[in-house]
Write a protein that binds this DNA or RNA. Structure first.
Lengths: 234, 234
DNA sequence: AACATAGATATTGTTGAACAATCCAACAAG
DNA sequence: CTTGTTGGATTGTTCAACAATATCTATGTT
């Protein structure tokens, strides 16, 4: 085997490394809890008792505590000393701050569409389409998920792994808010058409136009969300 | 006592809350390790053995592992399954990504100087001055610290707690790079004058000017850092 | 009835020991 | 010089224990 092709082989194997990565029990527990929180099984304010959850999942208290630490750091859980961990409850101020971050990051990211990795644009299109399909099926929860993916894809345009990771967290936090509202349709359906329009502007290379429309989206979504949320948290 | 001043008192007490908050052993351990890493006692690639560190600090392995989880999540430690935790080693790609984030966030934040909280502008000025003082004392490490605080203050202009938190982490990661370089003067002194200039432009309300100069700073710092770093990590 | 107090109880915080799983280095065999 | 094998070291995970803290309950007071 010639040396060049050896290098090619090892290169491709290195890319496979992520596939075979085993994970610790702690990480798997964290993943499960994260899913249950973002899907709404555990709701904001719920207390997660170590012994109850530990025996339910069949893991020891120590392992569970490590998982709790991870999720607290992600702001999904709220660890109060000597009192236990609770599913995070966002204040209105938190929602405002989350949208400040979104506006800053997303609006800047969308201006980088021309230099964006190809995958990002593809994800953008896929998100728009899967949202529209979900809407024709009246699957409003799926519409919400697609909407999240749309905005995640917007951030991908900036081409920074750390920014994507940060946005994953920001959107996960926002899910905590969505779940205390009972009507996902109201909060997601109106934005389907707008996502399609934004995509068009991006593909046309209209930086100012796409940013303006995205900014308008965020402002309106924030107003709607804060309005409904401030009534509930009183 | 009139009601207004009662509110003022409680307000100030609420601000004191962070001072008296007790902390768990885990968090204190994490804080110590974080300091030792950012100050350079532990260097990138160093392995942190559970038993060694645990007995040295007088805490149990379980507690220490929780602290390790926190710092791994902050990207200061690298937790490899069954192999142990190591002080994170940044690749050149990591450095590039970090600067991508910085450029995006800082350049956008500095445009918000007009609506920024008063404290942010004050921090900006203080950082410039303490950097200049440190330079006259030839305290080059302190110059570096002041430089970090300058950029942290730039992010504060955006007025988002989450963004500040994110930037704290980004800058902590960058410290990992600075510590493998041996000459802090080379990497920080040239930017003292520039920070002063940027501050002037901000105070003059020149959004485009301050952004341009900050962007230029970041581009040059990145080039310098990547150039020196890619020689070392080979 | 509202309130304070003091136990009693449950839960978290932290430890230490134990054992299985895994890695790593050194050595042996082909 | 590569491929098994073996032994020691370290991590992954569990368990049981106890101290520290919070929460609940009952009791007594005004």
């Amino acid at each position: 085997m010639p040396p060049e092709s050896v290098d090619a082989v090892t290169e491709s194997l290195i890319r496979d490394r992520s596939l075979l990565s085993r994970t610790s029990t702690t990480e798997r527990v964290a993943a499960i809890l994260r899913d249950r929180i973002t899907e709404g099984l555990f709701r904001p304010g719920d207390r997660l008792v170590e012994e109850t959850i530990g025996t339910a999942l069949g893991v020891s208290r120590n392992t569970l505590r490590e998982a709790f630490r991870l999720l607290s750091h992600e702001r999904l859980l709220d660890h109060r000393l000597n009192r236990g961990v609770f599913v995070r409850e966002l204040s209105v101020d938190d929602v405002v701050d989350l949208f400040r971050v979104r506006r800053l990051v997303e609006c800047t990211a969308i201006r980088h569409a021309d230099t964006a990795p190809a995958a990002a644009l593809r994800h953008l299109r896929e998100a728009v389409e899967s949202g529209e399909h979900a809407a024709t099926d009246h699957a409003w929860l799926a519409v919400g998920t697609a909407n999240m993916r749309f905005h995640q894809a917007v951030v991908e345009l900036a081409g920074s792994a750390r920014l994507e990771e940060m946005m994953r967290q920001v959107l996960a936090e926002l899910r905590l808010v969505f779940h205390v509202m009972n009507d996902p349709r109201t909060f997601h359906e109106p934005y389907l058409a707008r996502n399609r329009d934004i995509l068009k502007l991006v593909e046309a290379g209209d930086r100012d136009g796409s940013e303006a429309m995205l900014s308008g989206y965020l402002t309106e979504a924030e107003r709607q969300l804060v309005g409904a949320y401030s009534l509930l948290t009183r």
